[in-house]
Amino acid sequence: MKRRGIALRKTVDFVVKLLSIFFVTITIALMGWIIYIVIGKGVDALSWTFFIEPTAPYGVPDGGIANAVLGTVLITLGAAVIGVPTGILGGIYLSEFGSKSRFGDFIRFAANVMMGMPSIIVGLFVYAMLVYTTKHFSGVAGSVALAIIMFPVVLRTTEDMLSMVPNSLRESALALGMPRWKSIFYIIFRSAKDGLITGVLLAIARVSGETAPLLFTALWSDDWPTHFFTEPTANLTVTISEYATNSPFDVMHARAWSAALLITVIILVLNISCRLLFGKKRHG
């Protein structure tokens, strides 16, 4: 190391420390600002009718977001039904059968790459696969898109959680003569339960705020989601996007803020409660 005065070196160190405190403060402050704005602007339009009325067409002053909430719940549940079992099964393979094999390494690598794919590409892909071929937008296409985003996340968390289970448990189950599948579902899952639930809930929280893939698949509508499989389905995020950008009415902006508040609260509550209930969990 070059010779430099101790005073200079200490000053540099001090300045960097000050800078880091400054930037950490700024970042947290910006986050506080976002949450403050969302809450401040969001509570205005909140009312009882907001939660029980469906969205109104352009220019109609009244209306709620009940159909969009229901649609988002349906789409996200659909995604969970498709994505979670597949992800968990794949995670079992990586942790229990393929932990040292080349194929396993390759899958693990591919899953990491998939996790970083832009969600809009997933939307485009599902559009080509399900919307273009069937000629109609549908809620189920949205579910498939979200499931594709969810799948690698669930897969990797499952693997991480299962590989934390001590091997002695697996060995004792096998020594009792259990088939492996039974030992996995009855013994290993039980001991990795908290981690698995956290992983799945966080994956659900993550996809429930997605907008871009739904633009290409579920679109949105002012109706109740009665034709989930064949027609555009109302959902919170695309409704927010429509109200915020394509509308000149202040009432609609206010409703967009309230919907934004709702989705933010849901996601943050899911995140915080997962962390509080199940201890410290690394992010995906």
């Binding site: 950490v24 970042t27 947290i28 986050m31 600002w33 976002i34 704005i37 969302v38 602007k41 929280a205 993550r206 705020g209 997605e210 907008t211 871009a212 995020t237 927010i240 996007s241 915020a244 950008t245 902006h253 967009a256 803020w257 934004a260 989705i263 933010t264 996601i267 943050l268 995140n271 915080i272 962390r275 992010h283």
Partner: peptide, 24 residues
């Protein structure tokens, strides 16, 4: 708490950033 807050910041959906960006 700061690490915790950063993790939560990562969880905020992008549409919220978009709206905050557009209006504020």
């Amino acid at each position: 708490p700061v690490s915790y807050a950063l993790d939560l910041l990562a969880a905020i959906p992008s549409i919220i950033f978009g709206m905050w960006g557009l209006f504020v």
